[in-house]
Design a protein around this nucleic acid. Sequence first.
RNA 1: UGCUGUCCGGGAC
Length: 319
Amino acid sequence: LVSWNAVLAAYSQRGLLTEAKALFDRAPERDLITWTAMLSAYTQNSDLGNAKLVFDEMRERDAIAWNAMLHAYAQAGHLEYAKHVFDSMPERSVASWNSMITAFAQNDHLAEAKAVFDAMEQRDTISWTSMLTAFAQSGHLRDAKEMFDKIKDPDLVAWNAMLSAYAQNGCLDRALEMFHTIERGDSIAWNAMLSAYAQNGRLYEALALFCSLPERNVSSWNAILTGYASNGLWREAIDLFQAMKTVEMPNEISFVCVIIAASHLGDVDCGLGAFVSMRLDYCAKATKQHYCCVVDLLGRAGYVREAEELLQTMPFVPE
RNA sequence: UGCUGUCCGGGAC
């Protein structure tokens, strides 16, 4: 049972919903942990409906199961339901309170997030980090830093959160300071710093950092790609994408950047080629955003009729 | 072996 649960948890954490469900259905026996892992797998895939179904079918529920359901509602932006679960659950752990902080914060209810935080009788590093991020997201850098300073032994996530707080608010010097202070930074720290540079038009520094990294993942490449794209360096974006393809698997975001770049260069072949290759060669699914880009690509190049046709035939409802 | 924190790609408008 433990082995089955371990594999199910692995699927769930990687967002492999199909595999998780198949394993869940095949499992010879299921305990509370099995059910909770399945619930979380649905939450990971933004499938609130099925998460709720799993929760309803559970014959027993502990604090963790309740928290998982609370988080499912919070993720879906259903604050009222989240609050209701929070109020009606038999016992509340620090994780329950932490979930409420992010639930409010992510829905732009900073004051309520703070109220929850203040009402907590005990707080852990996650509580402080959640509040730090809540402040940072609404531009309250001083408050965010105050939270960070109150963490007795900040872990890498807390450091990264503060680094991102500076980076996202354009305080590149502060961000770099944090970046250098972090001893063993991970890819999240690198990429936060990368996109901070790239999004502020400091592409030279972004590239320098990019080249100096011990290793690069898709997000590192995408950070530079989007930096080029948002600074109008369309040609560079396409060139970088070509280089990227030789060493890294581009993802949906990479393709959006290329198609946008191609659109601005009027290079319909390049854009369409990327769009087709994305699905054929990389088995990536085209999102509404990709269709939006291709419509833009066609429209700009004067293929208005083709653009309209695509709008009619794409598997999404046009906005 | 299950729950919570480091959200975030452009364009068009």
